[in-house]
Nucleic acid binder design. Structure first.
Length: 481
RNA sequence: GGCCUCAUAGUAUAAUGGUUAGUACAACGGGUUUUCAUCCCGUCAAUGUGGGUUCAAUUCCCGCUGAGGUCACCA
């Protein structure tokens, strides 16, 4: 495919959440796959819903996911401006053309009157079409303060949707929609058509909710003498419960909130891209480059897909391990800043890297570091209940417990060259000498040095903690039981 | 209410006329010298419903049911 131009065109009314970020991902993938252009356009024509700072939030989200845009805010481009509020002249020019050709008219009918018409139709259980109520004498002029309506040309329309397939709609689906609002700003219905044409957009991807308005858009393209772009309807992402699309009202978290919780951009992109799309193979983990290579519109699912955070978290764990194993411990470590417990601050990068290296395969998110690594950075509070109540240790008498502690301390103290192997050897020897089961002996030492519900393999934990700290903790515990 | 869309296990999906309906997440069970995880093995689990077409239907057609969307001077 040549000269693919796609766009993501959000309105700055808040953050980007899981439910709507896919309409940025797919256009991005398609553009990259075809060496095309990906445009970011801000649709800020509703001045009442405008939220300060929302544009930055959107940019932030896109950057984090690695969806760099070729034209748009910050980077600029040849077909700017990229804020609709700065393109008013363009819309007015287009609407003047329509007025000139008798396809748009100024409509002074007050909203209250329109509501009345609508009410009548509703009572008669008939669909409301404004064109059945439009003024007898049409005013073909462009004035400030008066909404401009499209003079519709209702008829049977057919089109192809790249995801939904062959579509058809009758005249009842088309109406005299508002093009320019009273305040001089265009409606979405009009503005996006003008902009997509002006910016050379070849694929318009958006949620399925726009499917019903497509006949109106087709009529507009026709009246404007424009060739309609390829239309792509993206099915909704459903909330975890119920059957509604995922939205902020369902508590849909912002994409960046996941970043702050320690979800990797790689995992987020991977999960979202594969929610409602697959390449027909059984592959689950895709890099961004693989997604760019494999993505295809005809394999986008045409029914809604439920958002499943559990699977996202699973995928994040996969990515954490993949980055560590393939790119190295440092590659993963570089992503962990800000996720360590407060107490980790005074420790060196080397030490934290060692901790990460033995605990990374237990992480679902980087945020887990905070909960899971505390005992590496400061001495845990001694909790004799936890020790004595342990399911393996509660069978032992106090005397046996004390004896085991003593022997453990003695054995570990005798380790000359403190490392993973020597520690494992010592532990194995201790096992033989005490004739204890690993479940008992290891639980004792493990709990005594960590007082945590779980920790990495014992020899690894002891090794990272170091000789001094390990023995000090064991001695402290021995004294208090 | 009109119009439109959708329908495979709990979830995400594979299989577009012929398979014991595959895979992954979840759940459950087991294994890897403690724990929690990783990893490995296994178990459970699906074509909404009724008609057609066909030798054969998850797949094609129609009805039904269910779910969703839309009918704004919001996008």
């Amino acid at each position: 495919m040549k000269d693919v131009v796609t766009r993501f065109a959000p309105s700055p009314t808040g953050y980007i959440h899981i439910g709507n970020v896919r309409s940025a991902i797919y256009p991005y993938l398609l553009a990259r796959q075809n060496n095309g252009k990906f445009i970011l356009r801000i649709e800020d024509t509703d001045r009442e819903r405008y939220v300060e700072g929302a544009t930055e939030l959107i940019e932030d989200t896109l950057k984090w996911l690695g969806l760099e845009w070729d034209e748009g805010p910050i980077v600029g481009g040849d077909s700017g401006p990229y804020f609709q509020s700065e393109r008013l002249e363009i819309y007015h020019d287009y609407v003047r053309k329509l007025i000139k050709s008798g396809r748009a008219y100024a409509d002074p009918t007050p909203p209250e009157k329109i509501d009345e018409y609508r009410k009548i139709c509703n009572e008669q259980k008939k669909p409301f079409l404004y064109r059945n109520f439009r003024p007898e004498k049409l005013d073909f002029s462009f004035k400030e303060g008066v909404p401009i309506r499209f003079l519709s040309d209702p008829k049977d329309r057919k089109w192809t949707d790249a995801v939904m397939g062959e579509m058809a709609a009758g005249p009842e689906t088309q109406d005299d929609i508002i093009l320019i609002k009273k305040d001089g700003y265009p409606t979405y219905n009009f503005a996006h058509i003008v902009d997509d044409a002006e910016m050379g957009v070849t694929h318009v991807m958006r949620g399925v909710e726009y499917l019903s308005s497509t006949p109106n858009y087709l009529a507009l393209y026709e009246a404007l003498g424009l060739k309609a772009p390829i239309l792509v309807s993206l099915p909704h992402i459903l909330a975890p419960t119920g059957n509604k699309k995922l939205g902020k009202r369902d508590g849909a978290k912002s994409v960046t909130e996941y970043r702050d919780d320690g979800v990797l951009a790689e995992a987020m992109l991977n999960y979202l891209a594969c929610l409602g799309w697959n390449d027909g193979t059984e592959q689950e983990i895709y890099t961004k480059d693989e997604l760019i290579q494999r993505f295809s519109l005809d394999r986008v699912q045409n029914s809604g897909a439920r958002y499943d955070e559990t699977k996202l978290l699973w995928m994040n764990g996969q990515w954490i391990r993949r980055i560590f194993d393939k790119n190295g411990a440092e590659a993963l470590y570089n992503k962990t800043e800000g996720f360590w417990p407060e107490t980790a601050k005074s420790y060196s990068d080397e030490y934290r890297l060692k901790v990460l290296s033995i605990i990374y395969d237990r992480l679902k998110t980087l945020g887990d570091l905070r909960e899971m690594t505390g005992y590496f950075f400061n001495d845990p509070e001694i909790d004799t209940e936890m020790l004595k109540g342990n399911k393996f240790l509660k069978k032992l008498s106090e005397a046996e417990l004390e004896d085991l502690m003593k022997k453990s301390i003695a054995k570990l103290s005798s380790v000359q060259d403190w490392n993973e192997e020597t520690l494992q050897d010592a532990l194995n020897l201790l096992l033989e000498e005490t004739e204890q089961k690993p479940a008992v002996l290891f639980s004792l030492i493990r709990i005594a040095i960590s007082f945590a519900p779980f920790s990495p393999a014992l020899n690894l934990t002891l090794n990272v903690l170091g000789r001094e700290t390990s023995l000090a903790r064991l001695n402290a515990v021995a004294r208090s039981i």
